[in-house]
């Protein structure tokens, strides 16, 4: 009895330590002439509260991997555990998702967009409003709740999208190139803002991007994926201290990390 209790206790601490565990994940696309391997034997562990960035050449399947972590797509084989339980379908209470296109509903105001996940599960009106307001404050958009998406700039739309992803307070936030469509300046500001939100909320973030500068600036750990079939070929721990500042981008450490990751990507393309 004692032994079992210990085991479950162990399991609980283990689950706390790892927000996401991917084990032996492979994916194959069915095509007319046979099958195309898309992802091959991917195993990774994302510790709770960590900021992990995935980079890789176009078509390496990093977005697919993220969609599988979100439960939006099924892998051919392998498992994905989130908080110790498998991900088989979307579960916004465990995993929030932010897409490249902000994907806001144009007929809803910013506030109603943020409330959407809550209204989907019929949360009481006051709770919805209260939590959406809190999220709006968190992402720095207080006073903009009544605006429709077409009245917001690209950066503001992504702020709303982040608020919507976080409104159910999931431990994990998955982000698929969220700032790729923004101009360089807005992109830098948004990266910095994301780090602020991340440190305030203690979320685990898995972030997919093409930008190596963005990757090094944001990440605790950068994973490099190879082109088809997608495999993880490198892990780089980003040793820069936190909080990150724009000045760090000019340092040797930053440059060396960026260069190292670039060399890894060059090897496989």
């Amino acid at each position: 009895m004692q032994h079992v209790a210990n085991l479950s206790g162990l399991r609980a601490t283990h689950a706390q330590a790892a927000a996401i565990e991917v084990a032996g994940l492979s994916h194959v696309y069915g095509a007319r002439e046979g099958t195309v391997p898309a992802l091959e034997d991917i195993s990774l562990t994302v510790g709770a509260g960590r900021f992990v960035v995935i980079v890789g050449p176009s078509g390496c399947g990093k977005t697919s991997l993220l969609m599988m972590m979100a439960g939006l797509r099924r892998q051919t084989s392998g498992t994905i555990l989130c908080a110790g339980r498998p991900i088989e379908m979307p579960d916004p209470g465990r995993v929030g998702v932010v897409f490249q296109e902000a994907s806001l509903f144009p007929w809803l105001t910013a506030l109603d967009n943020i409330e959407f996940p809550l209204s989907i599960r019929h949360a009481p009106r006051e709770e919805r409003r209260r939590r959406a307001d809190a999220m709006l404050n968190l992402v720095g958009l207080a006073g903009f709740g009544g605006r429709y998406p077409h009245e917001l700039s690209g950066g503001m739309k992504q702020r709303v999208s982040i608020a919507r992803g976080l409104v159910q307070d999931p431990p994990v936030l998955l982000m698929d190139e969220p700032f790729a469509a923004l101009d360089e300046q807005t992109r830098m500001t948004m990266g910095h803002e994301l780090l602020r939100i991340w440190s305030q909320t203690n979320k685990t973030v898995v972030f997919v991007t093409h930008s190596l500068t963005e990757a090094v600036y944001l990440a605790d750990e950068v994973l490099v994926m190879s082109a088809r079939p997608g495999r993880i070929i490198d892990r780089t721990e980003v040793t820069l201290p936190r909080p990150r500042t724009y000045e760090m981008m000019a340092t040797d450490v930053f440059g060396r990390l960026r260069e190292h990751i670039w060399q890894q990507i060059r090897k496989v393309t």
Partner: peptide
């Protein structure tokens, strides 16, 4: 219909 909107709705558990 913008398929991204449906994907987003699915990710929110719709």
């Amino acid at each position: 219909i913008d398929q991204n909107l449906l994907l987003a709705a699915r990710s929110m558990g719709a």
